[in-house]
Design a protein around this nucleic acid. Structure first.
Lengths: 201, 201
DNA sequence: CCTACCGATCGGTAGG
DNA sequence: CCTACCGATCGGTAGG
């Protein structure tokens, strides 16, 4: 009815051809990066011709935004749920870090594409991503500030939030499913170090 | 005399036209990224035509390697010097982190290009960078292991080295010369948190 | 989903 | 350092 529904066709289909496109695109972006990846490479992986791809996508950048936005939202949603399920600031911090590592371990390729390529999104999509990232940083910040209020922590909340996030994010570069540490062990190691570093005295 | 001298023309000139090329290329790579940057953009910045640029460079990738290799070596050399100038493991850790933050603050743009684009180097140059990075991680690892021996620290040396490095490296994304914290303050904050987290008991 | 094709632009070279 | 130009390839479109 309203033209409003035409402005931003939000509901991205999550099955069938869409799912195949996102899957192959994720693999391709992970292998050669967004810029070196071509629509011809993607169409070949899907077994169709380059021109035919454009009945499913409207641009190459479209596909990148599909790959990235989903997983960025996953961090936020999963993280909120984790924080809500815990009581103390310490428990919330641990739950949030475990949630983060779970997303990293289960969606490692998409996460690495997210971290590597989000700058290449156009202004609108990038702004969207930045606000999701800020929201997530704020979630961690609120947990830390709560710990300051209950005097469980004694630290700079902004910098500490950044340091914890960067420690968590860097794991995508070296985490292996069959490696020495499980995702949960890595999360706990990070939390243990930072908790000791954040405690008063 | 020998053909050996022709194989790898190592000594890159560091003055005159070379310096201008590296400077403009660094700005350009920082603004739009390596792939979106073109040799025509670079030549325009230098006030010459695209074809003329090839009397100074042999390929676009050449320029990227100039920008990156220098600063990667800077981390290692500067870091070694810092570690040598301190006695205890704790003091060495602090000196190394301060050295790292000094490089980040004084060469922020080059460092961000380094972290962002090193994957796009060809196999030879990338292998070179990876070995420099490993060397640097090993330098930090040796400091931590020394702390384990003197029982100043109690932690997993490999993971702790990675976490400290990722914390340090992430600062390139938000450090500002005119920001709230100086490079040294940031280094000390990071060291303080990790030292508390790494101490026995 | 295909064939056929577009305008633009890319890194790089030849010859001066 | 310039002019002139190259082959390749890019994202994307028209018309079926």
């Amino acid at each position: 009815m309203s033209y409003m529904t035409e402005v931003d066709p939000k509901p991205i289909p999550r099955t069938g051809r869409y799912a195949e496109i996102v899957q192959e695109a994720t693999l391709m972006f992970g292998e050669v990066g967004y810029e070196r990846a071509t629509v011809r490479m993607l169409s070949e992986r899907l077994g169709i011709k380059c021109g035919s791809l454009y009945s499913h996508i409207s641009s190459k950048e479209d596909v990148l935004s599909w790959v990235i936005l989903d997983v960025a939202e996953l961090f936020t949603m999963h993280g909120r749920h984790a924080v809500q399920g815990a009581e103390s600031a310490e428990a919330q911090l641990r739950a949030l870090c475990r949630s983060h590592m779970q997303v990293v371990s289960e969606e490692q390729l998409r996460v690495s594409v997210y971290f590597e390529e989000w700058r290449k999104l156009d202004d609108n999509h990038r702004a969207n991503i930045v606000s999701l990232r800020d929201e997530y940083e704020e979630l961690l910040g609120s947990v830390i500030r709560k710990g300051l209020e209950t005097e469980a922590f004694d630290c700079d909340p902004v910098m500490t939030a950044r340091l914890i996030l960067s420690a968590l994010n860097s794991t995508v570069g070296w985490y292996r499913q069959d490696g020495e540490y499980s995702a949960e062990q890595i999360a706990d190691s990070i939390v243990d170090i930072f908790l000791k570093g954040m405690r008063p005295r």
